[in-house]
Write a protein that binds this DNA or RNA. Structure first.
Length: 497
RNA sequence: GCCCCCAUCGUCCAGCGGUCCAGGAUCCCACCCUUUCAAGGUGGUGACACGGGUUCGAAUCCCGUUGGGGGCACCA
């Protein structure tokens, strides 16, 4: 007999499109993706926009772009389709409503007429009495005379007993039902809440393994309860509730043999350097920012994979294929990991140095043509600009950690007038000796043929004896005069270019 | 208030009862190379949160303390 454990996994990421995708989210996506790719499974993208107040179209677009940039391609989801859509949760509202109606009819759920204010008051009373603010049964099961509003629907949780989550990264985690309240599955406005929509869609789409943030560990018992109710055969033995709801709402049926998710993996959170949860305060945490700052997507992926996991054999610099081959969810650590941009940058610089000149040239273009930052060259660049860029690449390759750093070096080469750094001028060009050196260099170089780095070096080194000056005293003024800065790529090559 | 999770160098990991006065990466420092900045090379500083057990033996197992984090929403 084939069980769900034998089948290739179906995993998903279900981002809520409010705000941007940050590195924590993309790491969760990556772990799901790696798991699927390693086992010939299916990686599903489902946009969870049940909170219509907060979801925005721009945010949806940003999520898709970020995933594509990182190279995390999805097998089912927006833009690519799939047999178990729709993959935007708001388009599944009819299905969710059908599920709730049946849950209500089956006695798994009940109506609660209490208003938000009444609930709030109840919670405060409980808190004041140092009692847990949870609810068992409706706060108010009757409609008040003259009241017309619809009730919210709550799932009925067991009053006692234990429930356990078998988690791939945390082991077995037990909860007591008496600590878990009857939770809302449908709001008074008729829309489904996260626990219901998420669980119902996972069941409907045949998700086998749920890998998500640790913050969702404590809602798992409720979803377990939902899975059970959704897949239990009804009294007349006509099959599961979820199938009837799917059929009723015109959504694709589940494939034969698909049960509810059986695997769980709750990942520790990614935190900032101050050990606080990631937020805007921590600088660039949005994936789009990493692209703009010149991090290579394959490096971000490599680094993120290592944030909470290691292959166990000491390797750190790994290609995507190597990551897929070595990745194992069960080997993921349980500690919250701090995001360390220094280490990311070190990996990035190393990877930049490993690029061929042609590859680096190509990758640098967006940082010069105005896509990111100021435009120094045309889009597309003309032959002259390309020639210059090709010449610049070997000069800057080993002094960059991020692609956007090319913007510091490039202006001197692509602009007619050199922009002088006042500090460098004050420090290097202020002295008489500097002026002497500069004039001598200018005379010596004037009309030099052939104009090559070697010839330039020969001439300038000749000056050293002639002027009885040290290399530093002669070369630094020339560097500042030509590049505008006391820090630059190698001098002779820069002059040639 | 209650429930759950976590705890090795500053940071990310390795370690899964002896081979650990704890290993790698990153950061930092020093030296070498060097016309600047880098890159590269060599070396170095730096950790098992604390207290009890269990055991011949504990970073590794158990309990507690402390400290972090998550949850107890008609947010996801």
């Amino acid at each position: 007999m084939t069980t769900s454990a034998d089948r290739p996994p179906r995993v998903r990421i279900a981002p809520a499109p409010s705000g941007t995708l940050h590195v924590g989210n993309i790491r969760t996506a990556l772990y799901n993706w790696l798991h699927a790719r390693a086992r010939g499974g299916t990686f599903i993208l489902r946009i969870e926009d049940t909170d219509q107040q907060r979801a925005t179209p721009e945010s949806v677009r940003g999520v898709l772009e970020a995933l594509r940039w990182a190279g995390l391609d999805w097998d089912e989801g927006p833009q690519v389709g799939g047999a178990h859509g729709p993959y935007v949760q708001s388009e599944r509202a009819v299905f969710h409503a059908a599920v709730v109606r049946r849950l209500l009819a089956a006695g798994d759920a009940f109506e609660d007429f209490a208003t938000a204010q009444e609930l709030q008051a109840h919670r405060e009373t409980q808190r004041a009495a140092a009692r847990p603010p949870l609810l068992k049964g409706p706060l108010r099961s009757e409609r008040r005379p003259g009241e017309t509003g619809a009730p919210s629907i709550r799932m009925r949780t067991p009053t006692s007993g234990e429930v356990a989550v078998d988690d791939l990264v945390r082991g077995r985690v037990s909860f007591d039902w008496s600590d878990i309240g009857d939770f809302v599955i449908q709001r008074a406005d008729g829309s489904a809440t996260y626990p219901l929509a998420n669980a119902a869609d996972d069941v409907a789409q045949g998700v086998t393994l749920v890998c998500r943030g640790e913050d969702l560990l404590s809602v798992t018992p409720r979803q377990l309860l939902l899975y059970e109710a959704l897949t239990r055969a009804d009294d007349e033995g006509r099959g599961a509730l979820v199938d009837a709801a799917l059929d009723e709402s015109g959504l694709p049926a589940r494939a034969p043999g698909w049960g509810p998710p059986t695997g769980f993996a709750h990942l520790s959170l990614v935190v900032g350097d101050d050990r606080k949860p990631l937020s805007k305060r921590h600088g660039s945490v949005a994936v789009a920012e990493f692209a703009r700052h010149g991090y290579l997507p394959e490096v971000l992926v490599n680094y993120l994979a290592l944030l909470g996991w290691a292959p166990g054999d000491g390797r750190e610099r790994m290609t995507v294929d190597e990551l897929i081959a070595a990745f194992d969810l069960a080997a993921v650590g349980r500690t919250a990991a701090a995001f360390d941009e220094d280490k990311l940058a070190a990996f990035n610089g190393e990877r930049i140095r490993a690029l061929t000149r042609e590859e680096l040239t190509e990758r640098l273009v967006p940082f010069l043509d105005g896509t990111y930052g100021q435009a120094l060259i045309g889009r597309p660049p003309d032959d002259q600009e390309l020639r210059l860029l090709r010449g610049l690449v070997p000069l800057v390759q080993e002094r960059m950690q991020r692609l956007d750093e090319v913007q510091e070096y490039a202006p001197a080469f692509f602009r007619e007038a050199v922009e002088l750094d006042p500090d460098a001028v004050a420090k290097v060009l202020g002295k008489d000796a500097a002026v002497t050196a500069l004039e001598a260099a200018h005379r010596a170089l004037d009309g030099l043929e052939p104009w090559t780095a070697d010839a330039i070096e020969q001439v300038l080194r000749g000056l050293l004896d002639q002027l009885s000056m040290g290399a530093r005293k002669v070369f630094q003024p020339v560097r500042v005069a030509v590049t505008g800065s006391s820090v630059s790529p190698p001098l002779f090559e820069s002059l040639e270019l």
